[in-house]
Amino acid sequence: MAYATTSRRTTGRRPVALPRKTGTWKLAYADFLTALCAFFLIMWIVNGISPSDRAELAGQFGKPSAMAQVDTRAEDLASALKADPALADYSDSVRVSHAPLEVRLELTDMATAPLFAMGEGRLNARGEALVALAGRAIAATGLPITLEGHTDAHPSTTEGYSNWELSADRANSARRLLENAGVEAARIRAVTGLAATRPLIVENPHLPANRRISIVLSFDKPAK
């Protein structure tokens, strides 16, 4: 007996099995090692730098550093001195500037309104009044003070009495006036005569404005 048989072949494509991803764990492990190395590197850097550098680094990531806070205080004090109505009457003779750790109050001589007796180590009546007003303006700050006396570039005409002695005497005269105005003597760290070595008007050191008293208020540097 004969049997009829038929043969059918499946048409189309069979689904292909997805290949096994055997290398994925290697990528994850490499990422883990990279992160771990970065962590230990950061820990080494943080423990190997000074606190001040660490604070500055923190400031770069949004945390205000101690230096930035000091700079804000210096800026605020400088603004307050500029706005002081008592000093405003002497605006031509008063210059205020600030840096991160200090505020400088410059009391300058003017050809039409001098602060000093010519060639002498004392201030005239106008200079005494201005220093007294400056003393009252800074008395409550409690900040350490350095006093600097400056002359112009003209040499002293008094024999045996150079611009060094002249500038030092003027700075010391200002010290006494500040103390009389209420500034505690213990706050004054130094009284220095600088002669004509640091002109205010660098391009013309002979101008009267270079004759001045600098009252420097200092903010102590944050401890390391």
Rank of each mutant, 00 (worst) to 15 (best):
A174W: 02
V46P: 01
I201F: 08
D152V: 03
E75Y: 05
D31N: 07
L133M: 10
V216A: 06
S162W: 01
L147N: 00
T24G: 03
R187Y: 04
N47H: 12
D92V: 05
I215A: 03
G59D: 07
A38L: 15
M43W: 09
P208A: 12
C37N: 02
D152P: 06
R14Y: 12
P144Y: 05
N172I: 00
T158S: 09
D152N: 15
P15F: 07
S218N: 10
L77M: 08
T192A: 06
I201Q: 08
G119W: 01
Y29H: 07
G127T: 02
E203A: 15
H154I: 09
T151P: 01
A74G: 08
T5K: 08
P222K: 02
A55I: 00
L123Q: 06
R176G: 14
S7K: 11
D169V: 01
D53Q: 12
I145Y: 03
V46L: 13
N172T: 04
R189N: 12
A196L: 00
L81G: 04
P51N: 05
Y29C: 11
A129K: 09
I215V: 15
L33W: 13
D220M: 07
G127I: 02
S50P: 02
T108G: 09
A74P: 00
R170H: 07
A168V: 04
R9N: 08
L105F: 05
N210M: 08
L81T: 03
T5H: 09
Y3F: 11
D220F: 01
R8I: 12
A66P: 01
T112G: 01
L115V: 02
R8L: 15
Y29V: 13
D53H: 10
D76Y: 04
D220S: 13
T197N: 12
D71K: 13
G23R: 10
Q60I: 04
W25N: 09
Y29W: 13
T157R: 11
E184M: 09
E179S: 03
H150A: 08
V183S: 06
P100D: 03
G127Y: 04
H98Q: 14
V183C: 08
G59M: 04
L105I: 05
A38V: 14
M43S: 11
S7Q: 14
I188N: 00
G193R: 00
T10N: 10
G193P: 00
R211H: 05
E102R: 13
A190G: 03
F39E: 02
A140Q: 12
D89N: 10
E102W: 11
L115I: 03
W25Q: 10
S50R: 08
A113Y: 07
F39G: 07
A88V: 05
A174E: 01
N124K: 02
A139K: 11
C37D: 03
T158Q: 12
R212I: 07
L133D: 12
L105V: 06
N47F: 15
A153D: 13
M1T: 10
R104L: 14
S65K: 01
L27W: 11
L18A: 14
P114S: 06
A174C: 02
W25V: 11
R54G: 09
